[in-house]
């Protein structure tokens, strides 16, 4: 196995477990908390995020290294990444609606939500800061997405299990979900010795 593939694999695993975008970078919390009420919809959102993160990481890498760097417009990366993500999500939504209606009804309604999911932008920005190669960036996108999927599914399952527990009124809903996410994040810190990426 070449060094490039190996490092891509390391990045993939690290992004899922030790550098989880939700639980160690605290990105994408809005949809993480609001769509985690039911396990089925959280899996739907997780899959949609995984797909968009993986593909936009690749797209944004190409745009960054082949358009922004040569033109000296690196400082415009925030705006450009957002435009690329928004347009791509729109495109995927249209294509899915026509070509894969079943998938559209499972993921389609979550796609517009993802446009404004900061975890997707976060992945694009981190891959630049960490100077990943194309392959590494795609692996990081995939890992980020899977990490989101794991985190949101676990949270949804936990929320389902405590649905009949007596939560103090002030903490019901988002309050207890934030506390549970915090405890989950602590758990994930335990994995951080496993692999480290910078």
């Amino acid at each position: 196995m070449s060094h490039g593939t190996l490092s891509a694999l390391v990045i993939l695993f690290a992004a899922v477990f030790t550098n989880n975008v939700v639980l160690s970078n605290f990105l994408g919390l809005c949809s993480f908390l609001s769509v985690s009420r039911a396990v089925t919809s959280s899996i739907g959102l997780g899959m949609a995020v995984t797909f968009v993160m993986t593909t936009t990481a690749g797209l944004n890498w190409l745009v960054y290294h082949h358009v922004l760097v040569p033109l000296g417009l690196v400082y415009l990366r925030f705006a450009v990444f957002i435009i690329v993500i928004a347009a791509f999500v729109q495109f995927v939504e249209m294509a899915l609606e026509r070509l894969a209606p079943a998938l559209y009804f499972a993921l389609g309604i979550f796609l517009p939500l993802i446009t404004v999911n900061c975890a997707v932008l976060g992945v694009a920005l981190f891959m630049i800061i960490r100077q990943y190669s194309f392959l590494e960036s795609v692996a990081y996108g995939l890992g980020g997405g899977v990490g989101f999927l794991v985190a949101i599914t676990v949270l949804a399952s936990l929320r389902w299990r405590i649905r009949k527990s007596k939560v103090p009124p002030a903490l019901q809903g988002a309050g207890i979900a934030v506390i549970m996410s915090g405890i989950m994040a602590l758990g994930f810190v335990g994995l951080s010795g496993l692999i480290t990426i910078n």
Binding site: V63, V67, L73, A79, A87, Q90, F91, M94, A95, E97
Partner: peptide, 20 residues
């Protein structure tokens, strides 16, 4: 550059609209 990127993406979406 930003206009060009926006235009390319808009054209892509327009084509997708026609197609899909």
């Amino acid at each position: 550059a930003v206009t060009a990127i926006g235009a390319v993406l808009a054209a892509l979406l327009e084509m997708a609209g026609k197609l899909f």
